[in-house]
Design a protein around this nucleic acid. Structure first.
Lengths: 254, 254
DNA sequence: CGTGATGTTGAATAATATCAAAATTCGTGG
DNA sequence: CCACGAATTTTGATATTATTCAACATCACG
């Protein structure tokens, strides 16, 4: 437990044997093309908590994908305040924010120790140009990234803290499920403060929100471990339903 | 004043003579290429207030650019609530939200009568593939679009209504200036309600915010006409400065 | 078993939403 | 040019909600 030894085999094996295959760039790409992709993908030593993949102003040399662990992307304003603009789970591309300008507008910070794949963007574009499937995958992944940004905005326009929090947890749950983890037993990789800066709320408000959800029997909280007890209700709350009349009492059927 | 006759000449002339030339897709494209672009650009009859360019779920057939007038893009949730996710001034591409999925996630509504150019996306991709300059322009414009989304998020994470409003006005001012209109005399094309739904605030809060800014001598408000009297102060307010110690007193010089 | 970081809780304060009404603007037609 | 009505905007009073400052609890880790 104390040490997570680097799985050298996994490192060598490449995309073809990665558990994220179906979620990451390689999804739906043929065997040969996969090998070409493998050639340009760099697998790096584990990244430690707090390490950065890139900083604001860096050129967009590579895009990154975590095979495990988690990252946050943050915007640091002139006065040093940190604004969290996204969280990244395994299989979700990191670093596309520089697509427009060629320069990163944010920085990517590791929330946990993580193993990441680095894909040099020039090479990727080159390979993608010759592999229609990869080109399509790239667009798909970019689209997903834009979609997550939209989700974030949909969270932020909500005026009630409870809605934002419910929306956040529900969205995270969906994403965990997508990468093969339990949707109802989340181990949050980020602090309450990170969540607060992501939701545009005070840290204490987030904490209280969690407590409230627990009191209402929607979730169970143990620090960063969150168990979702009533997914339907969580979703209801995420869409403006007040604490008024949850169709409880032997809930989901009638 | 009562009638704005359709300028047939302008309609015929095409991109080469459009006043938006340097801001729109054609910027920096050679004469011949411009003609090829012209061939695929459709110029439509004026769009009336409230008309939609596309709706949620529509396929991304075209992208649009207003030559004059203004649009909003809105997200309509299941329960019929409207969320404003963007405003579009002349020269700003509309309809890129569908890039990822191929389907529009939002709908584009005319805020004023407007003349728009429609660019069929398939054709555009085709032409762009053969014109490196256009390809680059397209990326630039997409990047700008993503940038405006980021700006919106940066507005929404602000916790003070006054900051959001200041940020909104300041950003709008910059964009007006970019299209050759006075930066300090804005004719807002959108209602207070639209602004509220864009900023994630109650309509009344927006109104009060405007009034407050007027009382503080930062702007002058006459309905939808807003004059910016102290741009520096507006910018200061946009970045968390309280009403504490504005370096006022014979303001702008010292 | 301390110790610093992280998370929770409480009380007072400040900000915003909500409900209601008045004022203004704008388009339209006389 | 003026008057009218509908829609928009502003303003007021009040209730809700979130923030802030502070203390306390808990967790992770050495």
């Amino acid at each position: 437990m104390a040490t997570t030894p680097i799985d050298v085999l996994t490192l060598r094996r490449g995309c073809a044997h990665c558990t994220l295959q179906q979620l990451c760039l390689p999804a739906g790409i043929g065997r040969e093309e996969l090998e070409r992709l493998d050639e340009i993908v760099k697998r790096k030593r584990p990244v430690e908590v707090g390490e950065r993949l890139f900083r604001q102003g860096d050129g967009m040399d590579s895009v990154f994908v975590a095979r495990d662990g988690a990252f946050k992307t943050v915007l640091v304003s002139e006065d040093g305040e940190e604004q969290v603009i996204g969280f990244h789970l395994p299989g979700e591309l990191i670093g596309l924010d520089a697509l427009g300008s060629g320069e990163h507008r944010c920085e990517a910070v590791a929330l946990t120790r993580a193993n990441v794949c680095e894909v040099p963007f020039d090479d990727l574009s080159g390979v993608a140009a010759r592999i229609p499937g990869l080109q399509r995958q790239l667009m798909r992944v970019i689209g997903q990234s834009v979609g997550r940004d939209q989700d974030h905005r949909e969270i932020l326009v909500r005026r009630q803290a409870s809605e934002r929090i419910a929306l956040f947890l529900h969205g995270l749950s969906e994403r965990f499920e997508k990468i093969g983890q339990a949707a109802d037993r989340l181990r949050l990789p980020m602090s309450r403060e990170d969540i607060a800066r992501f939701l545009g709320l005070a840290l204490e408000t987030v904490s209280r929100g969690f407590t409230r959800l627990q009191e209402d029997g929607v979730i169970a909280v143990h620090g960063r471990k969150v168990e979702i007890l009533d997914m339907d209700e969580l979703q209801r709350l995420a869409h403006g339903a007040e604490g008024d009349a949850p169709p409880k009492k032997g809930a989901r059927s009638g």
